[in-house]
Amino acid sequence: MTALGHVPGPVGAAPPAPEASRRGLSGYLLMLPGTLWLAFFFIVPTVTLVASSLYDPSGTFAEGYQMTWHWQNYTDAWSEYASTFLRSFLYAGATTVACVLLGFPLAYAIAFKAGRWRSLMLVAVIAPFFTSFLVRTLSWKLLLSDNGFIVGLAQALPFVGEDFRLLATPAAVITGLTYNFLPFMVLPLYASLEKVDPRLIEAAGDLYASPFTALRKVTIPLAMPGLVAGTLLTFIPAAGDFINAELLGNPRTRMIGNDINDLFKSSVIPTAAALSVTLMAAIIVMVLFYVRKAGTEELV
């Protein structure tokens, strides 16, 4: 778009009408491949999912399901699984907060203080992706194990009881989620912070802002797009994740992803679909609200 815009031309000359409509057509043609892709791989599955959530639940896999606009699936699913939903959002929220607290200083250090180590540190942030998600989560199992050194060290502290443990607790699930999604916070934050002009921060200092005030009034507002992108990229997948709860949790730390997965596997399709749609809708509403509050409409 910008490439065409830079072509020099007479200012203010309005094009004749037929030209405009032809150019409009080419716009749609350019969008065609992407639109088709989305139609097949996003719209069709989504519509099928919504349809499945409205099946008559008395159907069976053998005889087939009828789409009967059975909205009650939603109320039934909600009354059974509301607490799991709340737990998922709680864990995802805690994960996002932990990722901001860990990720912001890290991204700041990489952007402003790393000097010639910058590329190396960025590679280090991405390095965990070289091994599989599962293997990384399984290694947390070893680290947090009841007989592992972390729990051993903790038990040696005076105020920690003998039966203290980490694995199979909510703390372990949130730790695992934080670890797995931290790069998704660091990378967008870094991209934003890297663009911040250091002279602006210096100028704040010259105007008698303390370093903290400069951070609060200059750096953080300029890093907002990265922060918003980072929180979205962390919160959304964390809310739907089930691997961490499966491997690091206990039966009372199950997240909504675990229930959806199990219900689909045991062919309880309408309930599973209703839960998926509810999750999707809840996330969309939260994201819209959040983006509006954060005031960065240019992101969407």
Binding site: M1, T2, L4, G5, H6, G9, P10, V11, G12, A13, A14, P15, E19, A20, S21, R23, G24, L25, S26, G27, Y28, L30, M31
Partner: peptide, 15 residues
């Protein structure tokens, strides 16, 4: 020959 009517940066105005 023709500059886009809405100015630079919006060269495909119909969409």
């Amino acid at each position: 020959r023709y500059r886009p009517p809405l100015g630079p940066g919006l060269s495909l105005p119909s969409v």
